[in-house]
Structures are given as C-alpha cells and as structure tokens.
C-alpha cells in the first residue's frame, strides 16, 4: 500500500478582516493567497525553503512587535494578519526604494508595477547613493552573472546547494553591503565546482543570472518576450524524463526552463537538458 499522509488539521486565520481556513503548517503567505491577497515577493521561491531575506512580503501580525515576513512565518490559529496596513505598506515602499537605489531592477519582473503601487522613489537617496553596480561576469558560453542586478536573495545559493543541486559552487561571501554571491576566492566559474545545470538561473528573481542567449539578445535589442512561445516537452537525452519548457522566438530556442511543480524535475535540469538543444 502507499502510505497515507496523516490528515492535516485546518486552522482559522484572519486576513484583512476576512476569515480564512488553511491547513496547519501553511505560511502566512499561503493564507494571504487563499484570501486572494496579492503580496509582492522576491526572495521567495516555490521550490525553496523561504529565506525571508528581501522583506518585501512583510505583513502586520497582531501582537507582534515587528512586521512578519509572510513567506516564512507559519500561520497560527487565531492569527490576525494585516497585509495592507500603513505600517506594512511603508516598509514595503522603503524596502523597494532601498533595493532600487542600490541594484539594477530593470529586468526584475513586476518591480516597476510595485514601485508605482507603493509610491517608491529610489531617487531620493541622491546620486551619490552607493550601489552594487559592476560589470557582468561573462566567463563561459552558457550563462552570465550580472551582479549589478543581484539583490542577494540566496535563491541561487540554495538551488546550487543542499536544497537541489548539491554542487555548492557558490556561496554568499563577504558581509553587509559588500556581500556578494561568489565562488571560492571569486575564481571563474570554469575553475569552480559549477556543473552548468542552470538551476540557479531558473530561480533568480531579478535577471542577475541569465542564459547567455538571453543576455546577448538583450544586448542586441532582439529579446522580445511578447514574441516568444513556451512549450513544455520532454528532454531528449537520458531516460529520466525531465520536463523542459522551451521558450521559442523566431523558431529558435532561446531559453529552457522546467515546470516547478513537475514530479520528475521540481524545476531542475542538468547541463544537457538546459543547454543541449543547440543541435535542433
């Protein structure tokens, strides 16, 4: 017999005055989404353990001294959550300003919309405000690391590390504002433990990591997502049966991803599945 999961108890939570019932173990974010509340997230990944580093998803939880990260805080019975209070909105606004003033968010999906929604004005920190601007690292033909766009969400590190790939090619190095995602001694990827699975690129929320095809096409000005189709099919290499989502522009594959809810891959691929399409 297939072992049954023990039944999950349901708990009641209040979100913005509305009663919501969620399974025990759900996060506040789950509860908010059940209630139909849209909360911005950046470092949250549907295949990763929440790191709650970016703090754009903070909400007000009654009785809590500080705001709580919705992505990681577990919902508790009787919890009263405010997603859109002045205090929560204020923190989200400033966090967006802090990010946008220090990091290039030009390829971060939704960033522009959120900034407008929260009235964020990153320019008010002045032109001298410190940034993480730096030239992109192009040290191989498969993917590019443009850390001027990196918000240090840790998702690439977690995907490369114990949560999925277990290659541990990168880590956060340094401290504070000077912290970076780095190989040991910042050696080039070609000298590192990287196996080019691209699972870091798959989870990057800002485009700091991008496939070389996308990076080059953006540089040429030919990258156009509105002209792209996405089709999910099966990898042509080994017999594991990984699901590939092919992003096609002008009858050319320009990017390969994998569905995050797929039981075979959970959104992960290897170098062949991710990059080995050159022959078609």
């Amino acid at each position: 017999m297939i072992p049954l999961q023990p039944p999950r108890r349901l708990i009641d939570v209040e979100v913005d005055g509305e009663a919501v019932r969620v399974p025990e173990g759900s996060t506040v974010l789950d509860a908010c989404r059940t209630a139909g509340k849209d909360i911005p997230t950046l470092c949250y990944g549907d295949t990763l353990t929440p790191k709650n580093a970016c703090r754009v998803c903070v909400v007000e939880v009654e009785g809590s001294r500080t705001l709580a990260p919705a992505c990681s805080r577990k919902a508790e019975a009787g919890m009263v959550v405010g997603t859109d209070t002045a205090r929560a909105r204020h923190s989200r606004k400033v966090v967006l300003e802090l990010l946008a003033s220090s990091t290039d968010l030009s390829t971060t999906p939704m960033a522009k919309e959120w900034m407008a929604d929260y009235g964020a004005d990153p320019a008010r920190f002045g032109e001298e405000a410190a940034t993480v601007a730096q030239p992109p690292k192009v040290d191989n033909d498969l993917y590019v690391r443009d850390y001027g766009k990196c918000i240090l969400c840790y998702k690439c590190v977690d995907a490369c590390g114990e949560q999925w790939q277990n290659s541990f090619a990168i880590s956060v190095a340094g401290r504070g504002f000077d912290a970076t995602i780095s190989t040991e001694f910042d050696v080039a990827l070609t000298d590192s433990a990287c196996v080019y699975c691209g699972n870091c690129v798959e989870v990057c929320p800002t485009g700091a990591l991008s496939f070389k095809t996308e990076f080059d096409m953006r540089a040429e000005g030919t990258w156009d997502e509105s002209e792209q189709t996405t089709t999910t099919t099966i990898c042509s290499y080994c017999g594991v049966g990984c699901n590939l989502t092919l992003h096609v522009q002008d009858n050319k594959i320009v990017k390969v991803t994998s569905p995050h809810d797929n039981p075979v891959t959970h959104g992960n691929l290897c170098i062949k599945g991710r990059f080995g399409y050159g022959y078609v």
């Binding site: 191989n140 033909d141 498969l142 990287c194 042509s236 170098i271 022959y279």
Partner: peptide
Amino acid sequence: LDSYNTGVQSSGFASP
C-alpha cells in the same frame, strides 16, 4: 555529465 552517447546531440553546445 555534459556529453551524451556518440556526441551527435551534445556536441551542439559549448560546454565549459
């Protein structure tokens, strides 16, 4: 890791 069988398919990309 980065190659496959007789290499006909996998030779099509620039594996580092």
